[in-house]
């Protein structure tokens, strides 16, 4: 086994140990077996799954975006895909549709928003060839959706504003046991779909023109990449709220550590390390719990933002 394989194996092992540590840390003594059962299935297990799936999913979507736009600064957050999901959720929560706020409504709206944002970016990518321009459009789109959310908040009732604010904080404890299979199914579908694209993803590294000459159906692959990203970012945003920087930082770290453009290895790294990163953030938040409370989004930004700044400085 080569060095890269060993690194991935080591990551898998550390992830397993982290899962055990997470399970140990979230353990609370319960008075009855029934209560212990509820605690495990409704609180501890979904929290663990949230961290694993959200971390892995966001990292994978970031990797796909960075490949598609050939820019290490791309990611679902930067390209406005999370913002699209957030906007449709805001419309649902603040726009006076409380009867639609059950799970399917929430996930549906979030997925719809993510797909619409991805479609918009796809359309823009036809017209704007430069990746920097695309990223700027993504940032403008995120700013635009943020402004609409502010307008909606100024019209909404205090209760609606509170509900949206809570969702917007991002949390790994909102997912219920019944929702785990839904998120797991969407996640698995997205991972399998991206594994089918590995050859095309590797060819895209050379540039889309080169990939086309190598026989890759570039338009179809571009659409697939945006769809996978929307599927992952939309479903994760619906269940956990917006989580920043995971999708941006982890793929870059993967390329730096593995020194490869083989997307099978990069996808495996993103899945393992993305899950590990968010799990570690959650473990840290459990440790800090007795001192102060930090939303998961704050922790990921605290760790992710300096790393991205370091990357930018190093490149310049």
């Amino acid at each position: 086994m080569n060095r890269k394989g060993l690194l991935l194996l080591l990551l898998a092992l550390v992830l397993l140990l982290s899962c055990l540590l997470h399970i140990h840390l979230t353990e609370v003594s319960s008075s009855s077996a029934a209560q212990a059962n509820v605690l495990w299935w409704e609180f501890r297990f979904p929290r663990l799954m949230s961290a694993l799936l959200a971390g892995a999913g966001l990292s994978l979507s970031g990797l796909l975006m960075q490949n598609l736009f050939r820019n290490p600064m791309a990611g679902p957050y930067v390209l406005g895909i999370n913002s699209g999901a957030s906007l449709t959720t805001a419309l649902l929560m603040l726009g006076g549709f409380p009867w639609m706020l059950h799970t399917i409504g929430l996930v549906g709206s979030s997925l719809l928003g993510a797909f619409l944002a991805a479609a918009f970016m796809f359309f823009v990518s036809w017209r704007v060839q430069q990746t920097t321009g695309l990223l700027l459009v993504g940032l403008m789109f995120a700013s635009f959706t943020g402004s609409i959310e502010s307008v909606l908040q100024s019209w909404a009732s205090p209760e609606q504003v509170k509900q949206f604010f809570l969702w917007n904080m991002g949390s790994l404890q909102q997912l219920s046991a019944a929702q785990v299979p839904w998120l797991l199914t969407l996640f698995t579908a997205a991972v399998l779909w991206s594994l089918l694209l590995i050859r095309s993803l590797n060819a895209f590294v050379l540039g889309q023109d080169q990939a086309f000459q190598l026989g890759v159906r570039t338009q179809r692959v571009r659409l697939s990449m945006l769809a996978i990203t929307a599927l992952l970012a939309g479903s994760i945003t619906a269940y956990c709220g917006p989580i920043a920087f995971v999708g941006l930082a982890i793929p870059n770290l993967g390329r730096q550590l593995l020194r490869t453009q083989d997307h099978l290895l990069l996808i495996l790294f993103c899945l393992l390390f993305g899950a590990l990163f968010l799990l570690a953030c959650d473990i840290l938040s459990i440790y800090l719990d007795s001192y102060f409370s930090l939303p998961i989004n704050v922790l990921t930004s605290l760790i992710g933002a300096p790393y991205i700044a370091y990357l930018v400085l190093r490149r310049s």
Partner: peptide, 23 residues
């Protein structure tokens, strides 16, 4: 003050009244 959600769940069996849940 703040408390973890599982901690409230496990230690609140004797609670007979819930005030100000916010809804």
């Amino acid at each position: 003050c703040f408390s973890s959600i599982p901690s409230v769940l496990t230690n609140s069996a004797a609670v007979v009244l819930w005030l100000n849940p916010g809804q």
